[in-house]
Design a protein around this nucleic acid. Structure first.
Lengths: 208, 208
DNA sequence: GAAAAAAGTGAACATCTGTTCAAAAAAGAC
DNA sequence: GTCTTTTTTGAACAGATGTTCACTTTTTTC
């Protein structure tokens, strides 16, 4: 696909790539012209159009400055490869609107790893899940969902307070099992209005 | 150093970062203003100046459009804030050249989280570190280094085989301690040529 | 060599972009 | 409360930038 490019066109492409690499943003047409020793921006303009037709160059919006990027270049806008995920210090009432006050920051995570669903990162407080090898200070990747299966590790609101527990549905009640031998399970009647499932744990991040 | 930023200034910084991440080039002042719901570019202009004075923002040349970049992200200009990290299935002889045959794939990770050093991801086999809450199948973030301190979790080559152990330097020998009560420590004479430290564990990724 | 395509020029124009200024609103500090 | 700092607005301006046009030069193709 690169074979039907002329020498000049390849030169322009290479100049764009180098400029982006060195400066962190794409060049303007006149900057490109000067870089290639040309006197007018019009020639570059024509060249960029033909490069666009051949599919090797793209621009996000017409008319905007510095908006060209090379197709297939890693430096190009990689929508989809990674996504920003907010770090929540504490789950608070009003979820899943993710109260902004509790935002610690955000991490960009690989979409291949966390998937496309609505997620956030929750910092673990305490040792209630130590038998599941989840430690104090770990970050949990939480997927917002109401549906979960027996044995899932979930985040639940229980009377305005958030907890991480393993979920089991029993006959007339729900059992929330802490993964810590020294702690007792919590039983929820089926009709408890103070109980609400926020989401389930899909992954874990730990920093040493 | 980030502590003397106002809330608004931090908001502006975050908007710049996100725009750069999504589009591959920095925003103009008016684009920023619209993004933040402001009516004029002048406010943004003043804000960028103060951010510049505080040293968190820089521009390559005055007067040029879209030429601002965030100081923390400047280490990898144009590469955004994530970096590709190879996933290694097994550590093999010949490291740290990271034999390509063993590459399982790669994940893009947040530079804020993994830092700028040379790293790779190693998949854990077995349960030798279960007492350190590291499970079979976890991915370890390994920083390539020869220097490590007592108590560090390290990756070491021992007679052509890779192991994950906790590192302790004793009088005339090195003790490699498995974090599993049922396993015995390994002792290495100080002059063992078959022993080599690959790196140390900086983080952990787990998927449920 | 003739014809066609590609590359380049120079000028003009509309819009975008950064910058400045005066003033007002909002938020904190005291 | 008063005062100061921060934040926002609106307008205006200069220069930068993308675009178009007519035309010339160079290169390629037949």
């Amino acid at each position: 696909m690169d074979k039907d490019l002329t020498f000049k066109q390849r030169q322009v492409l290479e100049a764009i790539r180098r400029f982006q690499q060195e400066n962190g943003y794409p060049p303007t047409m006149r900057e490109l012209a000067e870089l290639l020793g040309m006197a007018s921006a019009a020639g570059i303009h024509k060249m960029l159009l033909s490069l666009q037709e051949k599919g090797v160059l793209r621009r996000r919006e017409g008319g905007k400055s510095r908006s060209y990027h090379i197709v297939g270049d890693e430096a190009a806008p990689g929508r989809g490869r990674t996504r920003p995920c907010p770090i929540i210090g504490n789950v608070v009432a009003g979820m899943p609107e993710l109260a902004v006050e509790e935002r610690e920051g955000e991490l960009y995570l690989d979409s291949d790893w966390v998937g496309q669903e609505d997620i956030f990162l929750l910092r673990v407080r305490g040792h209630s899940m130590i038998d599941a090898d989840i430690r104090d200070g770990d970050l949990l990747v939480v997927q917002l969902t109401q549906t979960c299966r027996n044995g899932d590790i979930i985040i639940a609101m229980l009377d305005e307070e958030a907890t991480v527990k393993r979920f089991y549905r029993e006959k007339e009640r729900i059992r929330l099992q802490p993964e810590n031998q020294t702690m007792q399970p919590i039983y929820i009647p089926g009709d408890d209005p103070g109980f609400r499932i926020i989401g389930k744990v899909k992954g874990l991040l730990r920093k040493y």
